Simulated scan of single mutants.
Amino acid sequence: MTRLGLGPVGVTLDVRADGGHLEDAVLLEHLGYATLWIAGGQLATLDPLRDVVLATERIRVGSAIIPARVHPPEDVVAFRRDLEATAPGRLITGLGGVQGGRPLHTMNAYLDQLDAADPPVPPGARVLAALGPRMLELSRDRAAGALALLVTPEFTANARAALGEEAALVVMEYVVVETDPRRARDAVREPVGFLSRVGGYPENLRRMGFTDEDLAETSDRLIDGVVAWGDVDAVAARVRRHLAAGADQVVLAVRPTGPDSVPRAEWRALAAALG
């Protein structure tokens, strides 16, 4: 289905100043996750991507996303060229962060420079953050596919129809392994609340049927619609709904609820449940 050849389940990795995330990367590779993704807010430099690739053996590493407003095309080209020399085929170049007026024009111009570089960053090695119909079309036409966050399985089905059968669709899902509704929702309310007010997220949430009141309050209805929470079986069932709706990979952004700031127990349990 996809030019990227992704496995069905990936996972996000939080970068830590003490370097402990590199040990976590090794653990996640050992547990069988298909891809490690590093969020764009942690990519003030692109070094964390290189460090994780070099700390692991085979697992692919994706940027989710490299913010175009921070890193010019020539930096992305040089970074990928150097990494390909030592670890070919390991990096998935996720791009986005073109906020403000004329985002499609801005992204097209950015991609033009990636295409014209020597060597280029080829379309088959990159994905675009995409929520709206036109950005999904751009992801289909000028990249290997799309990367989406804060979406429902119904969105996934519609995005698959827009992308066609050849483009990749990567769905990132906040996950809380917790059966108590209050604790589960509280664990994820802050990041969901922040994102639901920035960039293209508010418009897309409204397209999916959420109201202005849902967004203003970060309502329970909003969280239940875009977050996988509950016991391991409930989370696994939600992941399978996205896969059945057309996602090539579901990326687990696991939020801990207990005293441990790194959700290693949850990673292990979900890896076992999702095979």
Rank of each mutant, 00 (worst) to 15 (best):
R3I: 12
G5M: 05
G5S: 09
G5A: 11
G10C: 09
V11C: 05
V11D: 00
T12L: 02
D14G: 13
R16G: 06
G19C: 00
G20K: 14
E23L: 03
D24Y: 10
A25Y: 06
L27F: 06
L28R: 09
L28E: 03
Y33S: 01
Y33R: 05
A34E: 01
T35A: 12
T35N: 10
T35P: 08
W37P: 11
W37F: 05
Q42T: 05
Q42I: 09
T45L: 05
D47Y: 12
D47R: 14
R50Q: 12
R50F: 00
D51V: 15
V52P: 03
L54I: 10
T56Q: 00
E57C: 08
R60T: 11
I66L: 10
A68W: 13
R69W: 04
V70P: 08
H71S: 08
H71P: 00
H71Y: 05
E74K: 11
V76P: 05
V77D: 12
A78S: 13
D82T: 09
E84D: 07
A87N: 05
G89Q: 04
R90F: 04
R90Y: 07
R90S: 00
L95K: 08
L95E: 01
G97A: 09
Q99A: 13
G100I: 00
G101Y: 10
G101N: 11
P103Q: 08
P103M: 00
H105S: 14
T106H: 15
M107Q: 09
A109Y: 00
A109F: 01
L111S: 14
D115H: 12
P119C: 04
P120L: 03
V121E: 03
V121T: 09
A125Q: 02
R126C: 12
R126M: 07
V127I: 08
L128D: 00
A129C: 05
L131G: 02
G132T: 10
R134N: 07
S139A: 12
R140G: 00
D141Y: 12
R142H: 15
A143W: 01
A143D: 08
A144M: 02
A146S: 12
L149E: 04
E154P: 07
F155T: 12
A159K: 04
L163E: 15
A167G: 02
A167C: 06
A168I: 03
A168K: 04
A168S: 02
L169H: 10
Y174D: 11
V176N: 15
P181S: 06
D186R: 12
P191C: 08
V192Y: 14
G193E: 01
S196V: 09
R197K: 10
V198K: 14
V198G: 08
G200H: 13
P202V: 11
R206G: 15
M208K: 01
F210T: 10
F210D: 01
D212S: 11
D212Q: 09
D212C: 00
E213Q: 01
A216S: 07
T218H: 12
S219A: 01
D220E: 04
R221G: 08
I223Y: 01
G225H: 07
V227A: 02
V232P: 14
A234V: 09
V235I: 13
A236D: 08
A237F: 06
V239M: 03
V239E: 03
R241I: 12
A244L: 05
A244D: 06
A245G: 14
G246F: 04
V250K: 02
A253P: 14
R255G: 04
S261I: 14
P263I: 03
R268C: 02
A269P: 03
A269Q: 14
A269G: 08
L270S: 06
A273M: 10
L274K: 01
G275S: 10
